[in-house]
Amino acid sequence: MAGEARKLNRDGYVHAREAGEYQRLRDQALLWQGATEALLDQVELGPGMSALDVGSGPGAVMRLMADRVGSEGNVTGIEIDANLGAQAIAALRAEGGTTFAQINADVLTIDKVPGAPFDLVYCRFFLMHMQDPVAALEKMQGWVKPGGVIAAQEYDFGSIAVEPLCPAMAEFNRLFEGVFRGYGRNLRAGRQLPMQFEAAGIGLPDGTTAETKFIPLKEMAAMLIGVYQGLFASAAELGIGDRARAESFKNDITAAAEDGRYYCITPILIGAWKRLA
């Protein structure tokens, strides 16, 4: 298993930081592009505005923001992984269309963000990795203009399943849930957004969204394998990663995908936003 001996990333990210994981993040962004576009439109991000993507990863949301703010607007990303951030900003600037900036930093330790305050401060698949999501939201709130919007989209993993019953998913869930719980990550981040907004002093959301997909397993198998492999080193550190089980999982989920009868219910992507006074 590639990366088996890797130590947990010093920044606490439980997935691998390597090319395969970066591609998985890009594929994940494509899967949820429509849901994020809908939220950006609901919060009325428009021409000439400024937007900050917290935990910007491969830059996919920054591109969606740029499509809305146009040449007179600006889009900034904060990403703790300097390598991934560098790849993202290079690609975005090559495409053009707006003014882009990238900040390589830990959200919890940075105070002043160039370009703040912003019309929109947003995160996706970010709070679920934070041991103190409320502290992250408090930081984000401080970077929003009066009258601007704070927004988040996070997974709720309570729905993920394969039908008919697929034995390989029991192994996926064992490792995935074991790593998330073992490192104090949040499997229910999406449904907890209203509570976290309140705890951060933001107030209850002005609006929420929720979206899931029910698609053939053959369209999700590569994603599930990528998640499993990206978490394997962290699982090994917890004593729950087993190479033989990992190989068996990959073979079994691939066979199930090729079978054609199996369908996957994805996690629910839940969004929430609040316009600040």
Rank of each mutant, 00 (worst) to 15 (best):
E18W: 13
A19F: 15
A19M: 15
A19K: 14
G20S: 13
G20Q: 12
Q23E: 13
Q23W: 14
Q23T: 12
R24K: 06
R24L: 03
R26F: 15
R26L: 13
R26K: 11
R26G: 15
A29D: 12
L30C: 14
W32G: 05
T36H: 11
T36W: 13
E37M: 11
E37S: 11
A38C: 09
A38M: 08
D41P: 12
D41A: 09
Q42F: 00
V43N: 04
E44L: 10
G46A: 06
G48I: 05
S50P: 05
S50D: 08
L52H: 05
L52D: 07
D53E: 11
D53Q: 06
D53T: 13
D53I: 14
V54K: 05
V54I: 14
G55N: 09
S56P: 02
S56H: 04
G57T: 02
G59H: 08
A60L: 03
A60C: 04
A60Y: 10
V61M: 06
M62R: 07
L64C: 09
L64P: 05
L64D: 08
M65W: 00
M65D: 06
A66R: 04
D67A: 11
D67M: 08
R68F: 00
S71Y: 02
S71M: 05
G73T: 01
G73Q: 02
N74K: 12
N74T: 06
V75G: 02
V75K: 02
T76W: 01
T76C: 05
